[in-house]
């Protein structure tokens, strides 16, 4: 049996190419998820400027930085997007059909407590206030996101109009589009992982969150 080449997998991830073998082959889907993850990570770093300039900021503020890169995210002053280096997103090797069947139960999935604590530590957040954050799956499990540290980040409920509730509304909308066959799963995963606010603006055709999404409740807060 011949498996998909990386070139064929890239075509499939772009919504082109023959997917008959891919859909039925766990090995090819795993490789596809690896390539999609690597591309997502590169995209996030590229769009974020590879941290150019960050190093200088960090050096000046070195006394405030606890270990390595953690803390920079807080110093950056924008906490509505994750740190691309810490949270590039990670997916499970699932087909569109599998994601849509599994979505209902995945909606209830919550990051394990130990993993949530590690997320806060990586982001330099000590003693997080209860109900102030959602330990959010950057790519939600309902969209094939994996339960990995690289897919989790502390998303605040306040501090910006781009809150965890607004992202939840986007996730819900994207899953519907994926399951209606109007959006490729890989595209949805990539868009939400690289710039979820940009994706929201694009899909809802607005510069600011819609009023009805400000109170959208899907995931539970960290307590």
């Amino acid at each position: 049996m011949r498996h998909c080449t990386d070139a064929e997998l890239m075509a499939i991830l772009d919504g082109e190419g023959e997917r008959a073998h891919f859909d039925g082959c766990a090995q090819c889907r795993t490789r596809g998820a690896e390539l999609a993850g690597a591309l997502r990570e590169f995209t996030a770093l590229h769009r974020g400027g590879w941290g150019a300039g960050w190093g200088r900021y960090a050096a000046a503020a070195a006394a405030l930085v606890v270990v390595g890169g953690m803390g920079l995210w807080l110093l950056r002053g924008r906490t509505d997007l994750p740190d691309a280096a810490l949270t590039p997103g990670a997916t499970r090797p699932m087909t569109q059909a599998e994601v849509c069947v599994a979505a209902a139960q995945d909606d209830e999935q919550r990051a394990p407590r130990e993993m949530a604590a590690e997320v806060f530590a990586r982001y330099g957040i000590r003693n997080p206030a209860p109900r102030a954050y959602e330990v959010d799956y950057l790519i939600s499990p309902a969209l094939g996101g994996a339960e990995e540290i690289r897919n989790l980040w502390p998303q605040p409920y306040g501090g910006s109009v781009w809150t965890a509730r607004v992202k939840d509304a986007l996730e819900d909308y994207l899953r519907k589009r994926v399951c209606n066959g109007r959006l490729e799963l890989a595209t949805a995963q990539e868009e939400i992982a690289t710039d979820w606010i940009g994706a929201y603006r694009k899909y809802f055709q607005t510069d600011r969150p819609l009023r009805e999404h400000a109170g959208f409740v899907k995931d539970r807060p960290w307590e």
């Binding site: 990386d6 070139a7 064929e8 997998l9 890239m10 993850g37 690597a38 990570e41």
Partner: peptide, 17 residues
Amino acid sequence: AAALGRAVGKLAAVEGR
């Protein structure tokens, strides 16, 4: 597709993924 297969394949091969 071939160019991206090569490029992204090399990125995926970087240790740690």
